[in-house]
């Protein structure tokens, strides 16, 4: 039950954390002027009108960074329990963790050699 109580606090926190930013934004509704017009609401651009669709295609490099990040992120999920238990573990567990991280480093070296980490 103690466990759940700690999380109940987090639950309450999640429930009201968004009130803090919402209050001033809502409050400014009463204080600020409301005078929209078409020119004012144009999309910001450096002195000229915007051309074409905003949602343009992006280069693949962003996706590759996100992919490499995802792989590392999932590896972390396995490494954190290992790290928590580390003080109670023996040499075998050290070897297991070493191999795990070594394979991770391997993937990084591959990405590096293939120039997948290059900003192009």
């Amino acid at each position: 039950m103690q466990l759940l109580n700690e999380w109940a606090f987090i639950g309450v926190f999640f429930a009201i954390a968004w009130v803090f930013p919402l209050l001033p934004i809502a409050g400014s509704w009463f204080l600020r002027p409301h005078k929209p017009n078409a020119i004012k609401q144009q999309t910001y651009e450096c002195g000229v009108e915007t051309v074409g669709d905003t949602w343009v295609q992006f280069k693949v490099q962003y996706y590759i960074y996100a992919l490499v990040f995802l792989v590392f992120d999932v590896e972390m999920v396995f490494l954190f329990p290992w790290a928590v238990a580390y003080k109670q573990l023996d040499w075998f567990a050290f070897g297991a963790g070493f191999l795990f991280i070594f394979l991770l480093a391997d993937a990084l070296i591959y990405a590096w050699r293939k120039n997948a980490l290059e900003w192009i």
Binding site: V60, Y63, I64, L67, V68, V71, V74, E75, F78, F92, A96, L99, F100, L103, L104, D106, A107, Y110, A111, K114, A116
Partner: peptide, 23 residues
Amino acid sequence: VLPFEVASLLLTAAMIGAIVIAR
């Protein structure tokens, strides 16, 4: 321990495959 290492291998393979396909 075996699934643990296989998971690492799998992720390595996933990353290599993704890089090959994406590039």
